[in-house]
Design a binder for these strands. Structure first.
Lengths: 113, 113
DNA sequence: TTGACGTACAACCATTCGGTTGTAGGATGA
DNA sequence: TCATCCTACAACCGAATGGTTGTACGTCAA
């Protein structure tokens, strides 16, 4: 049970970091964090085809960083509330483990002194 | 000047997120955050070739998340002190922008009430 | 000196990625 | 209704990724 759960978490984490590993997608997240934007509004900001931007939004959506909501004929994209916090927490966990290492080093230094 | 500086930051950020977008590499970072490990010590933990693990370490090193130090015939890998914090700060920045959006929504709700 | 160990790196392979163009379908306004 | 706007998606392409095996080089111990 926990094995498959861990695998799911890993899948999710893979997807999230992969999604953020592209500057266009990071820029999209920044912009839709400020206000909801349609795909075509987003597309007009970048020097690439509409389809390319559409793919980027799809990647972000699959990673759960962004949600889409149909409004009339446009599809309004918004940053997901909890997702960014989740990523930061993952990094925070890493930082805690790293801090443990630093404390060990400090302890060793104190021992020498 | 600032343009090229921004481009460099983007390159770095691309590399960091990309490096963390693989569960084996995340696991390596976690482990070398606790204690320095040689590449072969790392390699013995994963069900893949030595060369594959070596490549993963190289990716982490290029992203600046990890440093290698020669000790005898082994190459001790350690998590880089500032790097993880840098990544967390990047996420923090995103979260600040997202929080700005939430405050706008709160303001609108207050207006209605 | 000679093995054995730890590492580096090249070459190769299948798959994924980031981009393109083209086609098709649902919603809107005249 | 009909032209237009916005979106969706398939097919394709070159480059990068994640893995493999094989070869070569430095370092240590006997």
């Amino acid at each position: 049970m926990t094995v498959s759960a861990d695998a799911l978490i890993d899948d999710r984490t893979d997807a999230v970091f992969q999604a953020l590993a592209d500057r266009t997608r990071r820029d999209i997240v920044r912009r839709v964090a400020v206000e909801g934007l349609s795909v075509s509004e987003l597309a007009s900001s970048y020097d690439m085809s509409f389809a390319a931007v559409q793919k980027h939004v799809a990647v972000l959506e699959r990673a759960g960083l962004v949600t889409k909501e149909r409004v009339g004929r446009s599809q309004v994209t918004r940053a997901d509330v909890g997702a960014i916090r989740t990523v930061r927490d993952l990094l925070g966990e890493l930082e805690v483990q790293w801090r443990g290492r630093v404390e060990r080093i400090d302890a060793l230094l104190a021992e020498d002194a």
